[in-house]
C-alpha cells in the first residue's frame, strides 16, 4: 500500500458517498445516469468475485464489500425507490456497446485465460468506459449540478491517483500491470475535459455548463 493508492481509494469512496448522499437527501436521481451505476455494479461484481477465493487484507475485503454494497444501493435508489425522478430521456447511452467490446477484448487480451482472470480483465476494461453514459448525459442536459460535478471530480481523481500508484510501484517494486495501466490511462483521459471545466468553472462557483 502507498499514499497514492490510499488517497485514490479514499477519493473513490468519497465519490460513492457523495452520490449516495445526494440521491438520498434530495430524494431524487435527476441528472444521474442509472446506466453508469449499473456498469459500476457490474465492474465491482466481476472484479470482486475473488472475495470468496483469496484474502488480501482486512482493508481490501472491507473496501470490496463497501463498493459492492454502495453500488447496488445506488442502483436500488435510482431504479426502485426514486424511479419517478429517473431521467429516462437523457440517460440513453447504449451500454451494450461498452459491455460487449470489453468482454471481447478481455477474451483476447488478458494475463491468463481462466474464468476469474478474464472476468477481472473485463472489469478493468469496462471500468475505463463506465462513466461515459454519465458524461454523455451531462453533455445532453448541457449542465450538471455542482454536487454531481464534485462526484465526477472525486471519481476521476481516484484512477488518476492510481496511475501515480502504478508509477510508484514500478519505481519501488518493479511491479506493473499493463492491462490495468492502459485502461486506467484511458479512464482518466476521458475525464480530462470535465476536469478542465471543473477547475475553471465549478471551483469559481459557476455552474458546470458543457457545450451541448
Amino acid at each position: 500500500m502507498n499514499i497514492f493508492r490510499l488517497t485514490g481509494d479514499l477519493a473513490h469512496l468519497i465519490a460513492i458517498i457523495i452520490l449516495l448522499h445526494k440521491i438520498w437527501k434530495s430524494r431524487s436521481c435527476a441528472g444521474i445516469s442509472g446506466k453508469s451505476q449499473v456498469l459500476f455494479a457490474l465492474v465491482y461484481t466481476t472484479r470482486y468475485l475473488d472475495l470468496v477465493t483469496s484474502y488480501v487484507s482486512i482493508y481490501n475485503t472491507f473496501m470490496k464489500f463497501v463498493f459492492l454494497a454502495t453500488s447496488y444501493a445506488t442502483i436500488y435508489l435510482i431504479y426502485v425507490k426514486f424511479k419517478a425522478t429517473y431521467d429516462h430521456n437523457h440517460d440513453t447511452f447504449r451500454i451494450e456497446f461498452l459491455i460487449l467490446p470489453s468482454l471481447a477484448l478481455a477474451l483476447l487480451i488478458n494475463h491468463y485465460f481462466n474464468f476469474l482472470e478474464v472476468l477481472w480483465t473485463f472489469s478493468i476494461y469496462l471500468e475505463s468506459v463506465a462513466i461515459l453514459p454519465q458524461l454523455f448525459m451531462v453533455s445532453k442536459t448541457g449542465e450538471a449540478e455542482s454536487i454531481t460535478s464534485h462526484y465526477l471530480f472525486a471519481l476521476g481523481s481516484y484512477r488518476a491517483l492510481y496511475i501515480l500508484n502504478w508509477i510508484y510501484r514500478y519505481a519501488t517494486e518493479g511491479h506493473y500491470d499493463l492491462i490495468a495501466i492502459v485502461a486506467g490511462v484511458v479512464q482518466t483521459v476521458l475525464y480530462c475535459d470535465f476536469f478542465y471545466l471543473y477547475i475553471t468553472k465549478v471551483l469559481k462557483g459557476k455552474k458546470l455548463q458543457l457545450p451541448a
Binding site: 481509494d9 475473488d50 488480501v56 473496501m63 500491470d177 490495468a180
Partner: peptide, 10 residues
C-alpha cells in the same frame, strides 16, 4: 511481471 499480485489492488 504480470497480473497476479495486482489483485491486491481494488
Amino acid at each position: 511481471d504480470t497480473g497476479t499480485d495486482t489483485k491486491d489492488e481494488l
